[in-house]
Design a binder for these strands. Sequence first.
DNA 1: CATGAATGAGTTTTCATTCAT
DNA 2: TATGAATGAAAACTCATTCAT
Lengths: 195, 195, 195, 195
Amino acid sequence: MTGKREATVAARKRDLIRATIATIHAEGSLDVTMAEIAARAGVSPGLAHHYFGGKDQLILATMRHLLAGLQARSRAGWDAAETPRARVSALVQASFGPEQFAPETISAWLVVYVMAQKNAEAARMLRIYVRRLRTHLIVGLRPVAGGQAEAIAEAAGALIDGVYLRHALRSTRPDPAAAVALVEETIDARLAALG
Amino acid sequence: MTGKREATVAARKRDLIRATIATIHAEGSLDVTMAEIAARAGVSPGLAHHYFGGKDQLILATMRHLLAGLQARSRAGWDAAETPRARVSALVQASFGPEQFAPETISAWLVVYVMAQKNAEAARMLRIYVRRLRTHLIVGLRPVAGGQAEAIAEAAGALIDGVYLRHALRSTRPDPAAAVALVEETIDARLAALG
Amino acid sequence: MTGKREATVAARKRDLIRATIATIHAEGSLDVTMAEIAARAGVSPGLAHHYFGGKDQLILATMRHLLAGLQARSRAGWDAAETPRARVSALVQASFGPEQFAPETISAWLVVYVMAQKNAEAARMLRIYVRRLRTHLIVGLRPVAGGQAEAIAEAAGALIDGVYLRHALRSTRPDPAAAVALVEETIDARLAALG
Amino acid sequence: MTGKREATVAARKRDLIRATIATIHAEGSLDVTMAEIAARAGVSPGLAHHYFGGKDQLILATMRHLLAGLQARSRAGWDAAETPRARVSALVQASFGPEQFAPETISAWLVVYVMAQKNAEAARMLRIYVRRLRTHLIVGLRPVAGGQAEAIAEAAGALIDGVYLRHALRSTRPDPAAAVALVEETIDARLAALG
DNA sequence: CATGAATGAGTTTTCATTCAT
DNA sequence: TATGAATGAAAACTCATTCAT
């Protein structure tokens, strides 16, 4: 009985987070109203509050959801890879996975960056993500790039974010393969330039 | 007579645009009030409306100001450069010039990307900027990169944007030299990988 | 459950419409603020918006309320009357019924005419009212006035509106009986002049 | 020198009053801005203030202009008429003279009635007009209507105002001849009904 | 006298949040 | 729990009026 209820609550929360992403994409900014999100999730405006404690909390929860999804994908690919270079590729591919590189998610990411400008918690979470990606890239690159691992990791990380940013402008469907190729070719070139 | 007046008006407008950038940076988002901007510019809230016709128009004017500054710098560097490769470097350096790569400007750029999600004019202007940078990069790269010019231009453009985005998170002073080096090294690596 | 709630909502809406009429009368013009109306209705300023969607919509709803009241009265009198001439009288009496010819309503009518100058929907509604009154007057007058029915209907309609307009200026209590007499005597005279 | 200046001042004032009428008509309400009126008159917003002392004063001056025009016409017709009945007709015709019955003037009249709801001076002026028209109508009607002169004057006055009001709704060009006929026929009928 | 830049008070409108049911 | 009616604070925007030039 409680179990079922809790399941329902969790489902509602998930619905609300999904609705938040969808609404941000539809609206194109953080200027989304709780009423709009709630309506899209099929619940009352009051409920969103009740569950998350406020708009900021809901946005943060959404952000956590995005980061968790990205991290899960990264970890899975990382664990499955067998060489350092393959581990780096796994991180790149995770960034452009079907769920992460969807137009809705891209819009949400952009908004998350904006939110991080004023919300300490959002900034903290985003910094952790950036640092973690950087650390993993370095670990993966060290065996093949040595002392240049940091620089290449830096470039690769910025490049991934840049590709996201540019797709925020496009109306065309994002092409994950092209995005991956762009980043991979750049990493390869920088590695080749070492020798 | 009129001259002096017009100069004053133009000066006030410039003040307001500068105040807009400063306020966006201070506030960290597009959620800045006209009153706040006006106060920072030392004018009444009503004046910003009077001059620009509304908040959106003021933001767009600010955007135009940023793009114009960037373009002026790019053009100057481009014209002064003597080799194709040097022209490409000029574009990169223009992107990270002291005014463009200041924390205030970085915040404003981020906001502009967000605005472009819902404002058609903002999207149009941003797309023109992206296209122009791309075109120039290709022109500069063609002699040295041949058929790979497009791919490298794409990577370089995304990288520049990515570096900006990452600095939007940092509280430390942006380091133009490091940013330029990051991009230049990547371009060099990709060019080297061709031969 | 819902029934009670809906009743409350409908009641609040009615309150707001009544408050609109009262405020227009007290203020003497369309220059009434939503805050003023809301305060008179005992609700928050935001609620009027929530319910009606804006000031214009609230005024239009008020207008609809006035026209509906007038029409209900007209129809009842019309149906109860047994001769054509009596039907005409019923229309005249409806125009000067206690609710329609109250000072508050008179003020509101004047404002409605002004609003119709710029608001298409208001103009449409007012034109429908004028046309409907005219049509009914003609139907009632035809058996007794023949080909002169149109001209007399026109005069009677204008006279009713003129009496309203003149009472908008007076501070004294409107006298329905005198108003009815004025119009009736004129209609009688014009009918008498036929034969 | 002063003469010329004063002539210019008077001309500017006249321009402003005409611009006020035109703007009220164009805008369809009292919600006209000083800036709009001034622009239409080809002067600066500040000048309208300087000349009239404020918006209310300008509107009142406009009202005075309308009433003066109407009265001049009435007096001229009255003086030229040779029988009591002809004097009454002169008043009716003055009300529907080409300048008075123009769409612009009709709009302005409506606005004047609205203004009289809250502005004491406007109400006073309008009441004087109504009383004067009434008095003159009675004087003209007395010889032919005896004790019924008051009642007929009342009806005629209300009818004139009603015809104006109804034309405020129409988009078609007002037809002075038809308006005069409507009122005249009604007066004739009421006079005929006496015998 | 004339301008029009500038002000700031006043109004509409929006929306996160609360709370009675 | 869940609703959605209601609030009220905050923001954009308007415009009569002022005043330095």
